[in-house]
């Protein structure tokens, strides 16, 4: 059984159709990249999968671990193991990152019938994860994403992913706003999380990220559908040719 099966997915935002019959299957242990021009529906796909309000599915189905994902609320999907690394992580003033992380991790643990971490145990747990991502204690004490640099925000996203240990992680343009050093740290963090069970869906505009997070499959999204699929070489090819051909084809 595949980890994620998307069949003929149609979705609208403000009554405007954005996804138009998208099919995609991700198996455990696979890394899929979705590339595409602006406005092709990349971010919409990530929000539809994570259950954001305002993104309305009009047709099709999505199975996650055999369960109907679209029936679940956003928080339930998260607790079941769907993680979205945000393109623009949100600031929550006054809430320390560590409190935020612990609240999230304990919500997921509770869902799986595990006992919640107390404050001391959690500090231990998170420090171990944080060290590899160059996230300092000081960052953990600062309010969630508040006053963080672009690189800090993305590292915090990957730390959250690592702490929550999801079955499926969707990375929405995680490379945006990162310089090359920050990109490497983030990519190392993601690669450290590759496993036989976990599926990764990497959404990106540029091939650059895929030099560091090497995908098993690359798909081109245009006008709300997958118009071409291939191996990692497809990304290199796209970098040369651009997306123009797909825009014309799909039109």
């Amino acid at each position: 059984m595949a980890l994620l099966e998307i069949k003929n997915l149609h979705a609208t935002v403000d009554d405007k159709p954005i996804l138009n019959g998208l099919d995609l299957t991700i198996g455990g242990g696979e890394v899929h990249a979705i590339m595409g021009p602006n406005g092709s529906g990349k971010s919409t796909l990530s929000y539809v999968l994570s259950g954001r309000e305002g993104y309305v599915v009009t047709e099709g189905e999505v199975l996650f671990d055999g369960k109907n994902l679209l029936e679940m609320e956003a928080d339930e999907r998260a607790r079941e193991g769907v993680f979205l690394a945000f393109q623009y992580p949100v600031e929550i003033p006054g809430v320390t990152s560590i409190t935020f992380l612990r609240t999230a991790v304990n919500a997921v643990r509770k869902h799986h019938g595990e006992s919640p971490f107390d404050a001391m145990d959690f500090v231990k747990y998170i420090r171990e994860k944080a060290s590899g991502l160059n996230v300092s204690d000081d960052m953990l004490k600062r309010a969630v994403n508040t006053g963080f640099s672009g690189g800090e925000k993305k590292r915090m996203e990957i730390l959250q992913m690592s702490a929550l240990d999801p079955k499926l992680a969707i990375l929405d343009e995680t490379d945006s706003g990162l310089d090359i050093d920050a990109l490497k740290i983030v990519a190392d963090g993601v690669n450290a999380m590759r496993s036989d069970e976990r599926g990764l869906l990497v959404i990106t505009h540029y091939q650059r990220l895929l030099d560091y997070i090497v995908p098993d499959h690359v798909h081109v999204l245009a006008k709300g559908r997958i118009v071409k699929s291939g191996g990692k070489d497809l990304a290199v090819e796209l970098e040369k040719t651009g997306y123009a051909e797909f825009l014309e084809d799909a039109a």
């Binding site: 259950g51 928080d75 999230a104």
Partner: peptide, 9 residues
Amino acid sequence: FYCRQRGMD
């Protein structure tokens, strides 16, 4: 949405 995507109700 950010909080809920992290599993909080």
